Simulated assay, not measured.
Amino acid sequence: MSNMRELPVLETTSAVPCCAPLVREPLTAPDSERLAAMFKALGDPVRLRLFSMVASHEGGEACVCDIQDVGVSQPTVSHHLKKLREAGLVTSERRGSWVFYKVVPEAMAALAGLLGQKG
């Protein structure tokens, strides 16, 4: 009997570029809530490292088997990747027994745009 199981499909908020840089105008309440969830997810060193590993992986996606060596147990890696998915920072797709992760480009653009300079 295998202890492998299907991952549940998680609904994530669509991450789209939302707002002007902070130096140009204040955030709206909904934008600040959405972006705060992203920054909160990235506020953990393990999650930030996993996000970086996915973002910089060749081909734009990474198998969990290639990014799980971050100094914590496999269940903890899964927990952190779930938090990144829930924040709308990454998507995942199961292929056989492995899960592949991709950074959501719109989330990256939203974070970069928010911290951008006055144009």
Rank of each mutant, 00 (worst) to 15 (best):
K40M: 05
F39G: 02
M1D: 11
M53W: 06
D31L: 02
L89M: 05
A110E: 02
W98M: 07
A112H: 04
M1W: 02
N3T: 05
L114F: 03
D66M: 11
V103M: 03
A55D: 10
T76A: 15
T12V: 03
L48G: 07
Q68R: 15
M38H: 06
R5M: 07
S78I: 14
P17F: 03
T13F: 09
V16T: 11
I67L: 12
C19H: 07
L111K: 06
T28F: 00
K83H: 09
T91I: 08
G43Q: 12
L81G: 05
G43F: 14
Y101F: 15
Q117G: 10
T13E: 09
G113E: 05
G60Q: 12
A41D: 07
G59N: 12
V99L: 07
T91M: 05
V54N: 08
E61Q: 15
E25M: 15
E11W: 03
V72E: 00
S78N: 12
R49C: 09
A55N: 13
M4W: 05
P21S: 15
V70K: 08
E11P: 01
G88L: 08
L84M: 09
T91A: 07
L89Y: 01
D66Q: 15
R49W: 00
T28Y: 02
S2H: 12
C63F: 02
V64N: 05
V64Q: 09
T28N: 07
G88T: 10
L7G: 00
A37D: 05
A110L: 06
A109N: 05
R95V: 13
P8A: 02
A29I: 08
F39R: 03
V23I: 11
A15R: 08
A87W: 02
A62L: 11
Q117R: 13
S32M: 10
L48D: 03
L10G: 03
E86D: 13
G60K: 11
L48T: 04
E11F: 05
V77E: 06
N3S: 08
V64C: 02
L10T: 10
L42M: 14
T28W: 00
R34F: 01
H80P: 06
A107C: 07
L114R: 05
G71K: 12
V90H: 01
M1R: 08
D31N: 12
T28H: 06
G60H: 11
V54D: 04
M53Q: 14
N3D: 11
